[in-house]
């Protein structure tokens, strides 16, 4: 399990080497959708990927290339059909329904293109919802929600419903909600897809600054080049495969790949080819 976003801070005077901790480990993942009329549609083909704790990674690709499906599988929204997927130390191929819900609640925070706020609830209640689902009492969860809304600059919008907020504000509420349970992994599916340029810039900046401040891993699916440019690494998916022709930047360093790494998933040693680090 990855450490909570806001507790992975290092202290000390000297430079301490800490080996990278794998947060997302995918090997040979294939996935297809079953459709009665058109037969099975392959969405992901033999995808392998490794993302470390604290990474900021972007998935790029044309519509229907499988980006969102990959994100859904990583986030436990969908069960992988073939291959190995381990996220934050959990083998997602083996979790039961309730364990998967627990995994989503504790390990992952989602930010959706459509914001995904419950229209009937206020901003504060929306941010409280994950805490409510985790069984947190009303006082601590209210305090946490207020803190998060303050963090995203919406302390003055707590009692507003989503319909009373602008798109950028809604997405900031959604980001606050995603962070409510202190997840180690933040997944964003086209977070700026429904926003104007200014709001998109603001949300992109917010995501990046929160990632740095809280130390969590950020995986973003986007078409938005400015948002993609903020990532340390970028992967391109085309026809369900990670495209080796893509490029990636890591803190200004070009990483050549693919490389081989080994990881343990649920007690089984597997070969983990590093993602197409281009």
């Amino acid at each position: 399990m990855s450490p909570p976003c806001d507790c992975a801070t290092c202290s000390g005077t000297g430079v301490v080497y800490r080996p990278p901790i794998a947060v997302i480990q995918i090997a040979g993942l294939s996935h297809r959708y079953r459709a009665r009329s058109t037969g099975d549609v392959p969405v992901l083909r033999d995808v392998s990927l490794l993302i470390h704790e604290g990474d900021h990674v972007t998935l790029l690709g044309p519509s229907g290339s499988g980006k969102t499906t990959l994100l859904s599988i990583v986030g436990g929204l969908e069960r992988p059909q073939r291959g190995a997927v381990a996220v934050a130390g959990h083998d997602l191929t083996k979790l039961t329904g309730n364990e998967m819900a627990e995994f989503r609640r504790r390990e992952v925070g989602f930010v959706f293109q459509h914001f995904g706020l419950l229209e009937a609830l206020t901003s504060l209640e929306n941010v409280e919802l994950p805490l409510m689902l985790a069984g947190v009492g009303i006082r601590p969860r209210r305090a946490r929600a207020q803190e998060l809304l303050g963090l995203v600059g919406l302390g003055h919008r707590m009692s507003h419903r989503p319909a009373q907020l602008s798109g950028g504000e809604r997405q900031r509420v959604a980001i606050a909600r995603a962070l409510a349970n202190r997840p180690g992994l933040l997944l964003a599916d086209e977070p700026t897809g429904n926003l104007d340029e200014d709001s998109a810039e603001l949300v992109g900046h917010l995501l990046e600054s929160l990632r740095r401040e809280l130390g969590c891993t950020l995986l973003v699916v986007t078409h938005h080049h400015a948002l993609a440019a903020r990532a340390e690494r970028r992967y391109v998916i085309k026809d369900g495969r990670l495209d080796p022709a893509g490029q990636s930047h890591s803190e200004g360093t070009t990483v050549a790949g693919p490389a081989k790494e080994t990881a343990h998933v649920a007690g089984t040693e597997r070969a983990w080819p590093a993602g197409e680090a281009l």
């Binding site: 329904g97 309730n98 819900a101 609640r105 925070g109 919802l129 689902l133």
Partner: peptide, 10 residues
């Protein structure tokens, strides 16, 4: 779906 994505059980 969103409720489930943020951790709601059945």
């Amino acid at each position: 779906g969103v409720m489930k994505a943020i951790g709601a059980r059945d």
